[in-house]
Nucleic acid binder design. Structure first.
Lengths: 210, 210
DNA sequence: TAAGGTGCTGACCGAGCGTTCAGTGCGCTG
DNA sequence: CAGCGCACTGAACGCTCGGTCAGCACCTTA
């Protein structure tokens, strides 16, 4: 009989540990090389195990990649929620949200590349990974849309299609992240986030909103 | 001595014809399958030639893909310029520009997928294709930035970092195109373009611009 | 210490890719 | 009509990659 710690066997703990090690290794490799060039061989090497070992913990490559992106998105969403909940008012919440995303993308390019590339992986008949990413992205958009809706109700934001606006903002964020990755540390995360929110709230038109 | 038509030999005309045929075939295949899955075999089949024949007209796959994206971008830019030049005022020009881009992306997904995927193709040490796409995208941003700057001078737009604003708009356009490709023909090109320009000019804030 | 089990290894496989090149056949020329 | 040149072909090549599995090493147990 195996000894138990907190209701889990030693084997289960070890398995979780190994699984996490491999996921983290995959995250690093993807962040460095992108999805397309992140081979199982390279990931195995990074994790310090043999290629075959990965297949003891994941059914195939796609399942591994899906876990990587899921994990990355979970961290991003947690940060975004935490940042937004600390801030007061729609503008501050959106800025905090963007800050979290920009910081997260700077520290960890893997999840962001996912956001960017996922459609490429299998444009037709999207498999597990594409579906998961689609779902994750939708979650982010929904969250942003929620912030916008509450802002509209409180009168801070004008009435608009919250979902469209949320997508609009998320895409802009994507662009800013891209730019930051291209020329890193050109400006602070806070400044970039503020610029985007400013554009988003006020636009570039000289006339007042209708 | 070969006969000449308009200063070009028959061989040159034929070569151009074949080259164009292959480029168009590649465009269709990329549009259907994406960059990653557009194999030379498939492109050759679509063009109605043998795989080896492509290598008589293009040094390698990358050169072929680069020509495809160059061609697509040239068409897009031509449309955008034409649309913008017909319109009067910054708002109308931007709307026309977005219309052109949305139409073009609807008819021809290849160039758009390029915009989306190019970073994926070679994240490190970007080769010919990535460099060309980067340059093309920069051209588009510059064009938009020009429209914005002139709008600022005429007083129609408020003063802002035109380049940042242009990137902001281009990314939003990208998002709209993505959405359109996901659920095609949900709304008219004109309506989508108007929505984006409206967001872009007025933002979602209830207060007037500073 | 011997036996048994289990986690792990890495050489191997087949598929698919971009690329090459010896061969083919068609059309032009003398 | 014979000979030649050249555009074109597609089988073959080298390579990479995801995925497999027979065997090994180590730990536990008796």
């Amino acid at each position: 009989m195996a000894e138990r710690v907190a209701g889990r066997t030693k084997e289960e703990v070890l398995k979780d540990f190994r699984t996490d090690e491999i996921v983290q290794a995959a995250r690093r490799v993807i962040g460095e090389l992108g999805f397309a060039d992140a081979s199982m061989e390279r990931i195995a090497h990074e994790a310090g195990v043999a290629k075959g070992t990965i297949y003891l913990y994941f059914r195939n490559k796609e399942e591994l990649l899906a876990q990587v992106t899921d994990h990355g998105f979970a961290v991003l969403m947690e940060r975004a929620r935490a940042g937004a909940s600390r801030a007061r008012g729609a503008e501050a919440k959106l800025a905090a949200l963007l800050c979290a995303a920009l910081e997260h993308s700077t520290e960890n390019q893997a999840i962001f590349r996912a956001l960017q590339d996922y459609r490429q992986l299998a444009p037709e008949n999207p498999p597990l990974l594409a579906a998961k990413l689609e779902h994750n992205l939708e979650q982010l958009v929904s969250f942003v849309a929620g912030v916008i809706e509450r802002g509209t109700k409180s009168g801070e934001l004008r009435a608009c299609n919250a979902r469209r606006a949320a997508r609009f903002l998320v895409e802009s964020m994507r662009g800013a992240i891209l730019e930051r990755l291209r020329e890193p540390k050109r400006s602070s995360v806070q400044a970039d986030a503020a610029t985007i929110v400013d554009f988003f709230l006020h636009g570039v038109g000289a006339t007042e909103p209708r």
